[in-house]
Amino acid sequence: MNGTRAMLNEARAIDRAAARFPKVQVAVAPPATLIYRMREAVDIIGVGGQDCHAQESGAFTGDVAAPMLKDAGADFAIIGHSERRTLHGESDADVQAKAEAALASGLGVILCVGETEAERDAGNAEGVVCAQLEGSCPKGEGAPEKLSVAYEPVWAIGTGRVPSVGDVAAMHKAIREKLVTIYGAGGADVRILYGGSVKADNAAELLSIPEVGGALVGGASLTAESFLAIVGAAASLVAD
């Protein structure tokens, strides 16, 4: 819940700079109030929504349907973010329904999963995340082609704490294996992002970890300067 029209200048700066990094896919998910204006303001980067409702329309005051996001110019939607799961009580079934609604409307989906600090300390992090995937991943033909999964350890979001390289590698390996179990061969191509206190000074290390195919950036995406440093780190790792 950050951003007014004044922040469109940051989006324009990101868009201009993205032209220098053609091998890196860059996207921003602003509040719903800015999706239409941002889509008009940028040419290169993707624009997405932060959530959507599972129904196409109806008596759901305050919610935003997937067709509305699409109509406003969104390319994708973030579904199941930890703040939605925690603060709004969204279950895996809720997340799955939203993901399927987004896909049905022609949107790509970034599906978020992650464990709490207590669940990691109990040694159950991988079990929790794999169960979330089992219950949250959208079903149906073609689902994996428009799906990305973002692993966001809840205890690392906005805290400055980051899991060890070994922990991230182990979790992304477990996610990949679970995706293949769910989708078969299609699960091998689903992009897996890492999210949780990603910054310019740790982006290259995180993005170098096996099975980490990108980053879901939080606070560092609020200014072009900090976000583009992460984009630049990603570009440095892409083979010519």
Rank of each mutant, 00 (worst) to 15 (best):
L34Y: 08
A239F: 07
G114N: 09
N202P: 09
A65V: 14
A235F: 02
I192S: 08
L103K: 03
R84F: 03
V168T: 13
V109R: 01
A131G: 13
A74L: 05
R16S: 09
I209C: 05
S226G: 09
D201L: 03
L207R: 05
A18C: 07
A143S: 15
S197T: 05
V162Y: 08
G186C: 01
G214L: 02
T33G: 10
A150M: 12
R191V: 02
L147A: 11
I110W: 06
D92W: 11
A234W: 02
C112L: 15
A65E: 04
A200I: 00
A93M: 07
D71I: 09
Y183I: 03
L179V: 05
A101H: 00
G127F: 06
E134S: 15
T4E: 07
C137Q: 02
A125D: 09
V47F: 02
G58T: 14
D94M: 11
L34A: 06
E211K: 07
V149T: 06
V28L: 14
L206V: 07
G73M: 08
T4A: 04
I230K: 01
R176N: 12
D15R: 03
R120A: 13
A188I: 00
P163K: 05
I110C: 10
I175L: 02
S91Y: 06
V95G: 04
L222E: 09
D189V: 01
A11W: 05
E205S: 11
M38H: 01
V64G: 09
R12M: 13
V129G: 00
P210E: 09
E134P: 08
V24I: 14
L34D: 03
N2A: 01
E141W: 10
G46M: 09
A220G: 06
T223M: 08
V24A: 12
R191N: 08
P67S: 10
G48P: 07
A74M: 06
A156R: 02
K146T: 12
G127K: 15
C112T: 13
G80N: 05
V154F: 00
E152G: 06
I157V: 15
A102F: 01
D71H: 13
C137D: 01
L107P: 03
C130T: 13
D15N: 05
A27G: 15
I192T: 07
P144F: 01
